[in-house]
């Protein structure tokens, strides 16, 4: 409607002769008779036949707009071409044709262009996400193992400390922990770069979760295994390292896989502490271009990452339990 309104304004400032005609066509448009308006406007003759050039261009462009509004792109273009035949340099007509051509192109073309535009910065963000994931995947199983061994220790202070660590890091939001480490610790004179803060935050949080998972897996191993290991003269440490812990791998993989999949997505939280990872990159693109393709693309990348890791974990789980397959 706005388009039609603008047309009517433009039509009112041309030569007397055609004023009447433009006004009549506006009335027809207002009544909804677009076909009638088109017929009327097309009666404006070409300037070679002694007509007014300005009125001719206006009328044909008006016809083009009406056709475009009706989604009849071919007729709209034809009307523009009438203008271009006589005035090849007419910018209005040329731009309109270009716009019509763009509309004719399939939607995926634009999407593809957006993807190619966004991919480089999203790829950078993905690398940062992967770095965070891999660092946490290295740190947290070790931390988790220490916490698990501490929890089942007979030394009261050790098991108490590990209980406290789990209680604290499982009981508060990861986002709060990250804020505290990055924004809170400087108050105590400890200022950490974002990546360090992120890895410490994610590492502690995931160590606490993995600690409980590992403890459960260790305690699920038949007690006879520890006795048999001790009976051939193994120390507690040897028995753990050689006999008990290797048997937990298969049982650990499903819950640990779960945790690591969650980790891939939880890394999005570190975007709040000045880290430009995948989520932050997508958010920046979205805010710059107001284009949801950036967010959709980020979602696809997260899915690809989680899918790859899922397959890796399934493979490891199979390999870890190979001794149970007959």
């Amino acid at each position: 409607m706005a388009l039609l309104f603008l047309c009517s304004l433009a039509g009112s400032c041309f030569a007397e002769d055609y004023d009447q005609l433009f006004r009549a066509s506006n009335d027809l448009m207002a009544q909804g008779d677009l076909a009638g308006a088109v017929t009327l406007l097309n009666q404006v003759p070409a300037p070679v036949a002694g007509g007014d050039a300005g009125a001719f261009v206006s009328s044909r462009m008006q016809v083009a707009r009406i056709h475009a509004a009706e989604n009849d792109l071919d007729r709209a273009t034809a009307s523009c071409q009438e203008v271009l035949k006589l005035f090849p340099d007419n910018n209005e007509a040329r731009n309109f044709v270009a716009a019509l051509d763009a509309l004719r192109k399939p939607r995926w073309h634009t999407i593809l262009a957006d993807i190619l535009r966004f991919l480089p910065s999203l790829a950078k963000g993905t690398l940062m996400t992967l770095l965070l994931v891999l660092c946490t995947m290295l740190v947290s199983p070790l931390g988790g193992l220490l916490i698990a061994l501490g929890r089942i220790s007979t030394l009261r202070p050790v098991s108490g400390l590990c209980w406290f660590i789990i209680w604290f890091f499982r009981g508060t939001p990861l986002l709060l922990q990250l804020f505290f480490i990055y924004y809170g610790l400087p108050a105590f004179g400890i200022t950490l770069p974002p990546l360090t803060a992120a890895v410490i935050g994610l590492g502690l949080n995931y160590s606490a979760y993995l600690g409980e998972i590992i403890r459960g897996a260790i305690q699920s191993i038949d007690h006879g295994q520890m006795e048999a290991a001790k009976a051939i003269g193994m120390s507690y440490g040897q028995a753990m390292r050689r006999i008990i812990i290797p048997q937990t791998y298969k049982r650990l993989m499903p819950p640990v896989g779960n945790e690591f999949i969650a980790l891939i997505k939880d890394t999005a939280l570190v975007s709040t502490i000045a880290m430009v990872e995948l989520m932050r990159s997508a958010d920046q693109l979205f805010n710059t271009y107001f284009n949801i393709t950036a967010l959709a693309l980020a979602a696809v990348i997260y899915l690809v990452l989680t899918t790859i890791f899922t397959f890796i974990f399934e493979k490891i789980e199979y390999r870890a339990g190979i001794y149970e397959h007959r």
């Binding site: 038949d222 006879g224 295994q225 006795e227 048999a228 009976a231 003269g233 120390s235």
Partner: peptide
Amino acid sequence: QAISALRAEIGMVFQHFHLFPH
């Protein structure tokens, strides 16, 4: 260590074998 050293000199066979499955 002393306990492990003693156990190394005494073999034990259990009712349920307790072989190391891995």
